[in-house]
């Protein structure tokens, strides 16, 4: 599990670097949220929860958000997806896209609630919807790629243990 997370971290860092530079005004699919989503329904663990917190923290630090707001949202999303995953199986493209889009909206609502509670006035609704659509569109493909990456990491780890 740790190796999977370590494999995801550089991707998340690169994504955030792009997000905070070239694509700061262009909506992008929420790749870190898709990672949280994937870990929550596929491999729910304490490490996954900690990773969700770290991802959120990194997002807030690198993209200028209120520290703790995105990590709070990611953690809540992680919990809810984990709970939902006990009843739902996110195996089809439709459920993954729908689930990811709802997760983005939920994240947006949570961040909005936290930021509003912190005494700031923000308007994020349009951006959140746009990002939800984009994330929903990319969700299935991204989850397939993450599965392959996880499989590769786990397989190489297994081979390493044998040798």
């Amino acid at each position: 599990m740790i190796k999977e997370i370590l494999a995801f971290i550089p991707i998340a860092l690169v994504f955030m670097a792009f997000k905070s530079t070239l694509f700061s005004v262009i909506p992008l699919p929420d790749i870190p949220l898709l990672m949280v989503f994937y870990l929550a329904f596929r491999r729910p663990s304490v490490e996954g929860a900690a990773f969700a917190f770290v991802l959120g923290y990194m997002d807030d630090v690198l993209c200028g958000g209120i520290i703790g707001s995105t990590s709070f949202a990611y953690i809540v999303v992680f919990m809810l997806v984990h709970l939902a995953g006990q009843r739902l199986h996110f195996t089809t493209a439709f459920t993954r896209s729908g689930g990811a889009a709802i997760a983005v909206v939920l994240k947006g609502a949570l961040v909005y609630a936290v930021v509003s509670s912190a005494g700031m006035h923000v308007r994020i609704f349009v951006d959140v919807l746009m990002q939800a659509i984009l994330t929903g569109i990319c969700a299935h493909k991204a989850i397939v790629l993450m599965s392959r990456l996880s499989a590769r990491v786990v397989t190489s780890s297994f081979k390493g243990d044998i040798s």
Partner: peptide
């Protein structure tokens, strides 16, 4: 334990944010 850890992390995040 997963829910509890997540809950604690969420609370800590909320504390950081607020």
């Amino acid at each position: 334990h997963l829910i509890l850890v997540s809950f604690l992390l969420a609370l800590y995040s909320l504390h950081l944010a607020l």
